[in-house]
């Protein structure tokens, strides 16, 4: 009963149009290798704690952008176009690094035992995620985006917790293939962001 009411309130098609890009750009699967390496000396309970903190902090960060992203940009005088282009360039750089097997994100970071920062930011909630969140919020409104973010982060935590099964199913090559394939899509998305920004400026 409640489900029916809930479902009739949410426009399923629009939800999918928000959820899929968000999930792809946040890309929790790509975090798995880092997560595994980072938590190898932790026990199950500690790992659960890390996965929770990672997804929760990424969620909070993206929520902040959902609520005050556009206003703050307006306040500091940065146009959406400029922001999109900047994020696009960053994503392009990251994705090219991912493609050649050496992601710039994890190059200079020191992992400590309970560190959450390199994992949730900028891995889960990186420039691509931030840009996509802001763009989607502008087009589809806050409720849908927030809802999609909740689902994405819950799924992320689940995926991180069940990393063993996922690795067994996908294999090391499968995971690697996914990371590189998604890097390719990220590069295309980056190009899209950059060119959308250029078009908006009206060159």
């Amino acid at each position: 009963m409640v489900l029916d009411e809930l479902l009739s309130m949410i426009d399923i098609a629009a939800f999918i149009e928000v959820f899929i890009p968000l999930f792809i750009i946040i890309n929790p699967l790509a975090i798995l290798p880092n997560f595994i390496e980072l938590t190898q000396r932790l026990d199950k309970k500690q790992r659960g704690s890390v996965s929770f903190r990672t997804s929760a902090s990424a969620f909070i960060l993206l929520c902040i952008f959902v609520f005050i992203g556009r206003p703050v940009l307006g306040l500091i005088g940065v146009s959406t176009a400029a922001f999109m282009m900047a994020c696009g360039i960053l994503v392009l750089y990251i994705s090219l690094g991912m493609l050649s097997g050496d992601p710039p994100v994890t190059r200079n970071v020191e992992f400590d035992r309970i560190s959450v920062v390199p994992m949730s930011i900028p891995l889960l909630a990186g420039p691509g995620a931030i840009a996509t969140t802001i763009v989607l919020e502008g087009t589809y409104g806050k409720p849908l985006v927030l809802f999609s973010l909740v689902i994405t982060m819950v799924l992320s935590k689940v995926m991180l917790d069940y990393y063993r099964q996922i690795v067994r199913v996908m294999g090391k090559n499968g995971l690697n293939a996914w990371i590189r394939l998604s890097a390719l899509f990220f590069a295309a998305i980056a190009v899209n962001l950059i060119t959308k920004g250029i078009l908006e400026i009206g060159w």
């Binding site: 149009e17 899929i20 792809i24 493609l99 390719l184 899509f185 590069a187 295309a188 998305i189």
Partner: peptide, 23 residues
């Protein structure tokens, strides 16, 4: 579906592929 949901077009993949080749 890929093009629709990720909001990319073949042209974007072309540019990305081109960048990879140049590098």
């Amino acid at each position: 579906l890929i093009f629709e949901y990720l909001q990319i077009r073949l042209e974007h993949i072309m540019v990305a592929g081109g960048v990879v080749l140049v590098l």
